[in-house]
Each structure stands twice: as structure tokens, then as C-alpha cells.
Design a binder for these strands. Structure first.
Lengths: 346, 346
DNA sequence: ATGAAAGCGCTAACAT
DNA sequence: ATGTTAGCGCTTTCAT
């Protein structure tokens, strides 16, 4: 008995098939289906014959082939740092929405904040070119991004203060200043005196800026900060938990902890609660980002709000302006505001 | 003064360039670079000349062109229901890991549980074929998925009991039974008597199975359930919050609430707390999924654990077995266990 | 208004 | 062991 495939080998319907059925040439089908139909006149009956054939066959154009020919592919790639951080969901969502308006597909890549994966992303783009790239680089240098652009001709928009390249649009927020302001408010407005910080390794510039803002505020207030009060996490809840355990195990623990992001702040909150410290009475906590989880935890988390949907919107808008050639000037810089949101944890 | 582009129009390095520099034919370069080099013998010096040229030019093969030629493209697509639900992060992560082992890129699409987006995903795949698809369909029918396969020849693996197609591998969990068991435990083990349920609209089969399991347990125990105790959400925290507000506004509110997923359970928990009900003393809550947030909230959430990393691993493993032709039998069904995890909310 | 033909960058069958 | 050639499915001149 002959073994037959369970499905007949799939039948790719191509333009040729449509052309044949419609009784026209393949290039005519192409003209009808691409926007060039606007440029080149097509007789109504031909148009209809083609549309009917497309319908009947359920034809879908092969975008791969189109891309190869046109050197553009109606696709952008987004490189974000952490798929499990809600902050990036809103960015991704906003980008998706705008991309859809431009009939453009979106490829999302996750780097886990790792240089290795950021590099891999660039290589993937080299091999599989896209029309545009939006990224949140934590390690990539100007040179590396510049090289990617030279090689692929891709348009790029970036979230991150540190990037400065001729044709790259940058969306940024003054997180250093915001951290300074918030720390200052904790000291002057809320009278905290023993301030601790949960940051990340010095490899991350945004972390450095926030730490610098924190330290500047503490020094400006004439306070000092014990080196053991500066802890390092890795952006995750778990690392915030461990950092807080360390902080609370000191003889005279801090009365307020400034965390570099909300996830670590939530970890810190959990640790404090597990050690039976009342928040904010015994130890206050402030985060950064304003992710939804800040209001899932009790007490609700005070935080410095970013506006990720707005960030994503700006990035995508700027990118499509370049892709579509509307904007060709030097790289623009869009500043996004940050806002302190006082809740129950301070 | 002439306006010059800020970057010289990018220079795409092709195989031709490599061939020219190496002083060999373009097909030789292809042989060196593709795995066909294993099949066809290449002289060591040619090999080296080519490799050197590749190095010197920083050449990256254009995967688009390769795909068009080979009809495979080292890319799979993943369709998940909610990018902001951590449950899916673990699935996506596990798939990514395995895909990377197979030198395969991953495209992630988000449907927000919406039929409209599930359809759009299928159309995107029709236009931009991939080697494999992993999906968590909530609305897509067997026919629709079957059509996708016939048209594109794509291999498919699915999370979801309801899908049954000749060559599609299915990973599933008996969520109805697990909900029955958990409800039964709430009644027999924990002595709750006034049980409520926060589900989703009947359009979702998994929701229906869980509701059925819940009802069966209640009835088996000889209890009845007030229709107003069956609330509907939309998988989100906010909808769980609203559902719980409704439940707690009844004259004699429930003493335990079974939620269809953790996000809605967390919403319910928040609502209870905002209405000053003690959890679990006045009202207990149980979720479904065991996402990390279940341990961020206080009290920690009792839940029915799924094992998303294992689910993702199974899906990806099965898919690659088909893509690589190792497995060609009829669709396999892999059952993933579910486990009740008792924490503080019950 | 439409068809014929070239070619995007690559692989693979066919030569030698 | 390597070069030549024919496409993959499409867009886009160039004819007519």
C-alpha cells in the first residue's frame, strides 16, 4: 500500500496562476495588485477579470518575492530589552498600532538587556533586511548602529539618551533629573534621611544617570550615603528582593529605597513585607516606570512615571516619516516628560 | 551647494562581490557558505579565499533571496493571545530558546484574544510564508488552520484542546478537570459554600471548560450557585476588578471566587482589598496559570499552575521535528499536567 | 492599455 | 573541484 502524504503537497498560488485564469499577462496582474495601478492606466474589464481571478483562487501575493525585487519589505523590527516588563508592552503596542496603519508588519526581538542578544539582533537584520528598526539599546554603540545603517540602509529610531547618529531619531527622557527631583522630594518633602538605592551595574548608562541624580540630591541636601546602601540588581523582581534583603539586614537600615525600575521596587516591597517591615512607615519605596503592577501591589507603589505608549508613538511616527521619505534631515531628539506619581509606598 | 546624503547610499554586499574579490564563481561562494559545502567537495584554498573575502567585505547572505529560492526561510511565527500576560512570556521564551538552537528566527504576534487579529495573523503568514507556526488559537477553527496549511505548506503546532487536524501537533491540559478538582477541594477541603466564578464570554472554549468543571463540582457537592455569581471578564486585571466589585455588592456575597486566570484573580483581590474585605477570611480567591505576579501580591495567590515553559518546549520541539522531517505521522497530542498550588488567598 | 523580458540575490541542477 | 545556467515570484523598464 502506497504511503500518501496526509495533505497533498501544498499548492502555492502565484501571479502566473491568476494571470492564466484571468487571461492576461502576469505583469498586468502585478500592475492591478500593486499601487502602480494608480500610475498606469488599466481598463476596467481587465481590472475586474484580475480581481475575480484573485478572489476565486484566494491568491495572496508573496511578499518575499516582492521584497527581493523592490528592496523594501513592509516590515520593521523592534528590539526591546525585556518582554516581561510591562513598560515595553506599551511601547510595542503603540508601535504595532502605527505600523498597522502603514500596512507594515512588526518583528519583535527581546534582548534581556544582554549585549550578546543586541549584537545578534543586528546580525539578524543584516541577513534579513527590514525597512526600519526601532530599538532600546542598552549596550550597542553609535558605531555599531551606524554600521548597521551603512550596510543595510535601514532607517532607525531609538529610545535612549546616549545614541547620537546623523540620521537616527532619538526619543529620550531626562531620567537623571527626574531621579534627582524625586530624591529631593523624598528628603525635603517627606523628610526621609537614610536613603538607599537599588540600581544596576555600571554597564547601563540609564542606571548610571539615575544613580548620579540620586547621589546629587543626597549630597545637595548635605546628607551622606553609606556605600552599602547602593545595591545592584538586574532589573528583575527577584534581584530587587535580594537587594532589599541585604539593605534590611544592615544594623541601621534605610528609611527609604529608590529603585531603578518598578520591577525591582516590587521585589523590594515583597522583601520588606516578608521581613515584617511596615511600608512606608518603617521603610518607604519608590520605583520607576509606572507599570500597571504598581497598583496591583499593596501598598500601591509610588513611582516616576514614564509614558511608554507616547514613547512608542513618537518612535514609530518618526521612523515612518523617514521610511516614507517625508523627513530626511539630521537626527531629531524628542524629549518625553517624566512625572512623579505619589501613591502609598512613600 | 549640492546637498549630499548624510550617509552614502548604502552598499549592499552580495555574493557576486565576494566571488569577484575571491576570484571564484558566485556559485562556488554559495557552496562554501551553505551547508551544501558538506555535500560538494571544495578545495581548501578556494574555501579559504572565499572565507577571507567574506571577512574582508563583512558579507552577510541575504536570507530573503535564499528563502525565495529554497522555499524555506529559517523562521517560525508564534501567535499568542496576550503579550502582557506573563504566562505567554514563558511560552515565548522557551520557543525562542529552541528556535535559536535550530538557527531559526522567531516572529511573535499578539492577538489580544481577538478573532480579527487571529485572522490577520493567518493572512500575514499567507503573504510572508514561514517554515512553521506555533499558535494559541482562541477563535480560529480547524478549517481555517487547515486552509493555512494547504495554502502555505507550513507546519503547525498548537496549544489548545479544541484543535484536531491531521498533521498538527497539539499540546493541551485538562483545565476542565483541574477546575473541577480545585473547586471540589475548596468545598470539601476548605469548606467554602458560597462559590462564585469569574470567567470569560462563551466564545472561549477554555473558559467554557473551566466553568463547566466549576459547575460540575458545585453540583456534585449538592450546592447551588446563584446566576449572579457567574461573572464575565476579558482576561484582564481590570475586568477581574469590576467583576469582583459586582460580586461583593450582592446582599450575601460569595465566600470564595474562582477566577479563570491569575490576572483577573489579581483584579478581584485588589477589588476586595479596596472594599476592605479580608482575604481569605471574608472572601477567598483562586486563580489559574501561576504567573509570577501571584507571589507579588499579598496575600499570595492560590492558583492552578500551568507550566508554560514546558508547554513552549513541547510545542517547539514537536514543530521542529516536523519542519526537519523527523516526524511525519498524524498529529500528536501532548498532555501537560496542571497542579494546584495553595498559597495564602484561600 | 497591455505584453515581453530583465533581474532582485540566491540555490541547485547540469556541465565540464 | 568549479563554472554556467535556470529559475524562486515578483516589479519594472521597454516595447507595442
Amino acid at each position: 500500500m502506497l504511503k500518501r502524504p496526509l495533505y497533498q503537497k501544498h499548492v502555492p498560488v502565484t501571479m502566473r496562476d491568476v494571470a492564466e485564469l484571468a487571461g492576461v499577462s502576469q505583469s498586468t496582474v502585478s500592475r492591478v495588485l500593486s499601487q502602480s495601478a494608480v500610475m498606469v492606466p488599466i481598463s476596467p474589464e481587465t481590472y475586474k477579470k484580475v480581481q475575480d481571478a484573485v478572489q476565486q483562487l484566494g491568491y495572496h501575493p508573496n511578499l518575499l518575492a516582492r521584497s527581493l525585487r523592490t528592496q523594501k519589505n513592509a516590515m520593521i523590527a523592534v528590539m526591546i530589552a525585556d518582554i516581561s516588563n510591562a513598560f515595553y508592552h506599551f511601547i510595542a503596542r503603540a508601535i504595532q498600532d502605527i505600523a498597522t496603519q502603514h500596512s507594515c508588519d512588526v518583528l519583535i526581538a527581546n534582548t534581556d538587556h544582554l549585549y550578546q542578544y543586541e549584537k545578534r539582533f543586528c546580525e539578524a537584520i543584516m541577513r534579513r533586511p527590514v525597512d526600519g528598526v526601532i530599538m532600546v539599546p542598552y549596550h550597542l554603540s553609535n558605531a555599531e548602529i551606524g554600521h548597521l545603517i551603512e550596510r543595510t540602509g535601514v532607517h532607525v529610531a531609538v529610545l535612549g539618551q546616549q545614541i547620537d547618529l546623523p540620521t537616527v531619531d532619538v526619543v529620550w527622557a531626562d531620567d537623571g533629573q527626574a531621579t534627582f527631583d524625586a530624591t529631593n522630594w523624598l528628603i525635603s518633602g517627606k523628610s526621609y534621611r537614610r536613603l538607599a538605592f537599588i540600581g544596576v551595574t555600571a554597564a547601563y548608562e540609564s542606571g548610571q544617570r539615575r544613580l548620579a541624580g540620586f547621589l546629587r540630591a543626597v549630597e545637595t541636601a548635605g546628607l551622606s550615603v553609606d556605600p552599602s546602601f547602593i545595591q545592584e540588581g538586574d532589573f528583575t523582581v527577584e534581584s530587587g528582593y535580594r537587594a532589599m534583603q541585604t539593605l534590611l539586614s544592615t544594623p541601621t537600615p534605610p528609611d527609604v529605597v529608590v529603585a531603578c525600575n518598578d520591577l525591582m521596587a516590587i521585589g523590594a516591597l515583597n522583601a520588606a513585607q516578608d521581613l515584617n517591615r511596615r511600608v512606608p512607615e518603617e521603610v518607604a519605596i519608590i520605583g520607576f516606570d509606572n507599570i500597571p503592577a504598581t497598583t496591583f501591589v499593596r501598598p500601591n507603589l509610588t513611582t516616576i512615571a514614564q509614558f511608554p505608549a507616547e514613547i512608542g508613538r513618537q518612535l514609530a511616527t518618526a521612523l515612518f516619516e523617514r521610511i516614507e521619505g517625508v523627513e530626511t534631515s539630521v537626527g531629531r531628539r524628542f524629549e518625553i516628560p517624566l512625572t512623579l506619581i505619589e501613591r502609598q509606598s512613600t
